[in-house]
Structure formats: structure tokens, C-alpha cells
């Protein structure tokens, strides 16, 4: 049994970043979200805030500025918080800054594995990997932004290490 202390900084350097394509995925997703918000704001401006004392269209303007800021800055920040690695016999997935999560799933605990690709992901040339465990807490661990070939490689390497474990 290995009880070597793992300092967080030391552990972080071993993490691999996601594919650049995932940055584009995040940008597109944020753009879609903000476009919806913008549409709502425009509708409110047109229908509700007509006789308002403030200059007409201020809400749409504010949301537009917010959208530009969000789409230009947030995806990059979000992207940088993601990381993953195969540590020994476990998959490690790290993400989030403000609310940071660092998950480790031992390969022998994986029940089944999905490799998937949505339309936006296909556009940007990335895939995601989902591992399912039997635990009631966090039973589905998703690792996005992988190169499709790499995703199947990880899938196969996990697959190879799932051994019969008749509990």
C-alpha cells in the first residue's frame, strides 16, 4: 500500500489538458446561452420596458456587454481548470475553479463506459468519455474534450483493466 504524501501542486503538474477543440465547444455553448439571454432581454425591452424612464434598449445593451465579456473570457478560464490523467489504476478528472472538483475512479470499479460525441463536439473534433460506477454518490464521471482516437484509447485501456470481481 502506498501512503506517499501527494502534494496538490505536485499532483497538478501531472495533469493533461483537454484538446483545444473543447475550448471552441465551450465558446459555442456560451454563445448559445448568451444568445438566448439576449433574445429574452430584447423581448423584455420591446414589450415591457417601452415607456421606461431609462433610455430605450438599455437592458439589451447591458446584456450584450455581459454576453461579450462572458463569451470572450469565461470559456478560456473554464477550459484551463480542466485536467485529467491516468494515475496507476485510476482515472483522475479535475475541473472547476470557484467550486473545484477532483475525482478519482479506480478502473476496477468501472461498470460500463460510454464514448460519445454531440453535434457541437463533432464540429470541433472532440469526444467525451463517461464512466459509470456503482456508487450512489457521483456514479457518472464525465471527461469531455478528448481527441476521438484518444477517447477510444482510454476506453480500451480501462476496458482491459476491468477484471472479474465477484463481490
Amino acid at each position: 500500500m502506498d501512503i506517499e504524501p501527494v502534494a496538490p501542486e505536485k499532483a497538478d503538474t501531472e495533469l493533461q489538458p483537454l484538446e483545444q477543440g473543447y475550448l471552441r465547444v465551450l465558446r459555442i455553448e456560451w454563445a448559445i446561452t448568451m444568445a438566448v439571454l439576449l433574445a429574452i432581454a430584447a423581448a423584455v425591452d420591446l414589450l415591457v420596458l417601452r415607456g421606461n424612464a431609462l433610455p430605450w434598449g438599455w437592458l439589451s445593451g447591458a446584456v450584450l456587454l455581459l454576453s461579450l465579456w462572458a463569451v470572450l473570457t469565461l470559456p478560456a478560464r473554464q477550459f484551463l481548470t480542466w485536467g485529467h490523467s491516468e494515475e496507476g489504476d485510476a482515472l483522475r478528472v479535475v475541473h472547476g475553479y470557484m467550486f473545484h472538483t477532483d475525482t478519482v475512479v479506480p478502473f476496477v470499479r468501472v461498470q460500463h463506459i460510454d464514448v460519445g460525441q454531440g453535434p457541437i463536439e463533432r464540429l470541433c473534433g472532440v469526444s467525451h468519455l463517461v464512466v459509470h460506477t456503482a456508487g450512489t454518490h457521483n456514479s457518472i464521471v464525465t471527461l469531455p474534450g478528448l481527441d476521438p482516437v484518444r477517447a477510444t484509447e482510454i476506453r480500451d485501456s480501462i476496458r482491459a483493466r476491468i477484471q472479474t470481481d465477484f463481490a
Binding site: 460500463h112 463506459i113 464514448v115 460519445g116 460525441q117 454531440g118 463533432r122 476496458r159 476491468i162
Partner: peptide
């Protein structure tokens, strides 16, 4: 499976 979103699921017999 999947038309627009593709998904490949692998289920080991052991599981």
C-alpha cells in the same frame, strides 16, 4: 447509437 449525438457504450461481461 444516436443519429446526431453519437454514443458508444462498452459493457464488460464481468459487469
Amino acid at each position: 447509437s444516436g443519429v446526431i449525438s453519437r454514443k458508444h457504450r462498452t459493457i464488460p461481461f464481468d459487469r
